[in-house]
Amino acid sequence: MAIHQISVFVENKPGRLADITAILAKGEVSIRAFSIADTTDFGILRLIVSDTAKASQVLREAGVASSVNEVVAVSVPDITGAFAQVVEVLAKAGENIEYAYAFLTPEIGTAHVIMRVGENKKAIAALTQAGFAVIDNEDVL
């Protein structure tokens, strides 16, 4: 039940992010969530998109280096302390969070949190058991 994430290598130079998002737009790929990790020389643009396969294809055609992996996405009620519970469940399961990013869906009243953990299966089992709704690409279309 993990979610597909596409990671794009972006050099730190002006206009590069604009180029890449334009490539996705032209390919009619919708960005559902994203985060950017940066170092001095390069950044990694992490995206959850409407059509991962299409995104990979248009990026490859445009000569942009990308790769796809699976991460854990969980739906969290938009109330104080909810995310703290998620983190606690994972800590108890012995799962490390390497990075996380979140987006709110005001119309539904929940937040989606996307996390890179050590072992997806273990994390998903722990979260499901604790009553959290783990979501996949279908849920964010």
Binding site: S7, F9, I44, S66, N69
Partner: peptide
């Protein structure tokens, strides 16, 4: 120039 197979979602991996 890096290729698709070298791209990772993790900065640590690329470094």
């Amino acid at each position: 120039e890096l290729s698709d197979t070298m791209v990772s979602d993790s900065v640590k991996e690329i470094e």
